[in-house]
Design a protein around this nucleic acid. Structure first.
Lengths: 227, 227
DNA sequence: TGTGCGACTATTGTCGACAATTTGACGGAG
DNA sequence: CTCCGTCAAATTGTCGACAATAGTCGCACA
């Protein structure tokens, strides 16, 4: 066999896991809805074995909650749980920024600056700053986290928390503070370019606190309007 | 049936998961050893179904690593991975201490102070400060994390990272800096008593950095002696 | 003698069926 | 009319068997 230097034999459970994860994150499977094993098994044309393994992994990254002998439901985030997630994000991404300041290469930091320049042009061209800014925002945070070169940090944030973040953005419909967020991103990159880990952590934590405050305010408004 | 106000229908997978987790942490299953499904299924007198689910959960908390069509092995931590864990711990437990400073009740803080007083007496009575100090150290950190009242933080640290910490303590045989650690613990509790979250976080992060430095030094000594 | 190909074995991945438990409905009593 | 006990249907948990893959051993051939 030709040497596939990174071996990846994909199993059914892998595919189903990725598929359900995607459907939860993009809202096809709505928060609080039941995950019926026989139903999904028929829908996907597979057995319950791999499906159960996929559900187990979804539970591991907190996208579904499961009770014994009752079943699994898509997670439905409360405002309190969202606050908890933001506190964890602040801690972990602050550390990621600190580590990235020494672990990222000059080229990686330059690429990151280019990404922000692209964002800036798009915002100035189109103040509606809609869907793209959301993905762009996550892309920025992804790069910082990966730049930390800390495998455990990367796994925790990219494989677990960020999916939850994308889920709640659909659930609550929070809009990002595009202009201010971009400025804060630029400040963070400036700290990285100066190799100032302490400053990068402080700026990242401040940035996430501001994002949290924005989200909480929007949710409070929403609940006030709905209730 | 009598009303068990907190239902705990324990499944086979739950029991097997807890059992294997315990055996990994206490060294009965050694790092790097293979987790054979047929063998363990026979040993525990169960089917491979629940066993596979248990292995999946163990993989989720990083106690085993699994490759498709190859199998699972008990995780074997490298020094680099240990450093990564310490960085994550520093971030998360620092945040936990910050939150605990406002979330813990006066009674909980008083109990924590009592715990440290007990540790102090034991260390002064018996300078050998052996096994108990290890569990006492984890007990202290457990209480801080639980005191944060942040469910996600509690789950990440208590259900995942602390098991890894206990595992590596067996794997590397690192001894705790009993006296110095105790003093640092006391300073943290003092900050909690003053409801100074900022200070509690700084002290906790400093404490974990010191623990990390101690562990890294011991490991370097060990490797130098062995190599 | 070394190397590469091929069959073999053991383990993992997957499937369908059985058992145990929850949930909802139905009927009757207060 | 409401509440409780019983029952039935559906779902989850568990099991044993089948299929597919990886690693190994042996053998032929250069």
């Amino acid at each position: 066999m030709v040497a596939t230097h990174e071996e990846t034999h994909v199993t059914i459970a892998d595919r189903i896991f990725a598929r359900i994860q995607q459907e939860i994150v993009d809202g096809t499977l709505k928060p609080g809805s039941k995950i019926s094993e026989p139903e999904l098994a028929r829908a996907y044309g597979i057995s319950r074995g791999p499906l159960r393994e996929a559900i187990g992994r979804l539970e591991a990254c907190s996208l579904v909650v499961r009770k014994a002998n009752v079943g699994a439901r898509v997670v439905s985030l409360s405002a309190e749980q969202l606050l908890e997630i933001y506190h964890v994000r602040e801690a972990l991404e602050g550390m990621a920024a600190r580590l990235a300041a020494t672990a990222m290469s000059d080229a990686e930091i330059a690429d990151l600056a280019d990404l922000l320049a692209t964002h800036r042009r798009q915002i100035e061209d189109d103040p509606s700053h809609g869907y793209f800014q959301r993905e762009g925002d996550l892309d920025f945070h992804y790069r910082i986290v990966k730049g930390s070169k800390n495998g455990r940090l990367i796994e925790l944030l990219c494989n677990d928390l960020y999916h939850l973040v994308r889920l709640y953005r659909h659930q609550f419909g929070v809009v990002t503070r595009a202009q201010r967020a971009l400025v804060e991103h630029e400040h963070i990159v400036a700290a990285l370019a100066e190799r100032d880990g302490e400053m990068a952590e402080l700026l990242m934590r401040h940035h996430i606190r501001a994002t949290r405050a924005n989200a909480m305010r929007r949710i409070a408004e929403r609940e006030a309007a709905a209730g």
